[in-house]
């Protein structure tokens, strides 16, 4: 990944706040800076509610940033107006967590798949239908699905249709938000193989949001760990299992249920309460739940710093990375 790495997406101190009732502010994403390289598969993992989907929506311009800038292929896309987004949509696709919400109940799968071909590629209905068949084949569903309604499909089948549609326009960046969580492991494997194939053939960049650490480890090039809207660690994914050092990343690794693990073992539950994204303190977001916390952690937010090649970490205690 060293030579001629082109940055396809650059985030500069990106924040997203939501205004709630009674003038309260919720910070969903907090000053995130990140480079995504062309052709890279970058994973985002982290606690439920830590801002992963929000980040995905910011990157694909579904939500507007509150602060900071996002550059896609060198162009600032953080302030685009609706009209200007249309073109970008072809290049930036997002697949959501929940396939059930994507469909309108009365639209047949065929019509759903035809849409991008008709709207963007200006194809006529018949050609679009042929293309749709091809897309369905790619996700291993036969053409009888074209005439089905969404409620007639299982969760996994729906998600495959969603993936098929996202791939239709050959985007250069795709955000996959929990795309496999509704799928059984063998279909998950097929989907990952499909995504791998697409990646090899098209070099599509993938921002892959997932809860499945093992999957991330095998599918992605780098992993970003988020906690409460902040990036706390970035590393190569094949090093996740042994050089991850942020105390939160450690907790994540310890919480995985392994099939052949010890079934009598006490469940590892992270102590303390997840903090609220509304009333942030000045210190480290993880301080209240961290076994290593010291006074400095209470007072000052640690910056994300390089601790060695390809490894960034935001932790006062590990700053100098005295990791052996």
């Amino acid at each position: 990944m060293d030579k001629q790495v082109k940055t396809i997406l650059k985030l500069e101190s990106v924040s997203k706040q939501y205004r709630l009732e009674k003038n309260q502010n919720l910070i969903a994403v907090n000053e995130v800076s990140l480079n995504l390289y062309q052709g890279e598969r970058l994973a985002i993992v982290g606690e439920s509610g830590c801002g992963k989907s929000t980040l995905g929506k910011l990157v694909t311009c579904i939500e507007k940033v509150s602060d900071g800038k996002i550059y896609f292929k060198g162009k600032d896309i953080s302030k685009l107006q609706r009209g200007q987004l249309r073109e970008l949509r072809q290049e930036l696709q997002i697949i959501f967590q929940d396939p059930f919400n994507v469909f309108s109940p009365r639209m047949k799968i065929g019509a759903f798949l035809n849409e991008p071909f008709i709207n963007y590629k200006k194809m006529n209905k018949n050609t679009a239908r042929e293309e749709s068949k091809r897309m369905l084949e790619a996700v291993e569903l036969d053409q009888s699905y074209l005439d089905k309604f969404p409620h007639q499909l299982s969760g996994g089948e729906l998600q495959r249709v969603v993936i098929a549609r996202a791939m239709a326009l050959n985007p250069s960046l795709i955000v996959c938000d929990e795309v496999t969580s509704a799928l059984d492991v063998s279909i998950q494997k097929q989907i990952i193989e499909l995504l791998t194939k697409i990646h090899q053939e098209t070099g599509m960049t993938n921002l892959f949001i997932s809860h499945d650490l093992a999957l991330v480890q095998s599918f992605c090039d780098r992993v970003v760990v988020m906690y409460l809207g902040n990036i706390v660690e970035v590393m190569k994914s094949d090093e996740l299992g042994h050089t991850a050092h942020h105390p939160y990343t450690q907790e994540l690794l310890n919480s995985v249920f392994s099939v052949h693990g010890d079934r009598k073992k006490e469940i590892n539950v992270l102590f303390g309460e997840p903090p609220s994204p509304m009333n942030r303190s000045g210190g480290c977001p993880f301080v209240k739940r961290c076994v290593m916390a010291c006074e400095k952690c209470l007072l000052k937010m640690p910056e994300l710093k390089k601790c060695k090649d390809n490894h960034l970490i935001a932790c006062h205690r590990l700053e100098k990375c005295e990791i052996k």
């Binding site: 606690e47 929940d98 929990e178 969580s181 809860h211 994540l252 919480s255 469940i267 539950v269 992270l270």
Partner: peptide, 20 residues
């Protein structure tokens, strides 16, 4: 039906414990 599919592993652990 798939109660933990959208949860990260630490919270999944909590939910699993809750069910137990």
């Amino acid at each position: 039906d798939e109660p933990t599919s959208a949860l990260d592993v630490t919270i999944q652990a909590q939910v699993v414990r809750q069910m137990a």
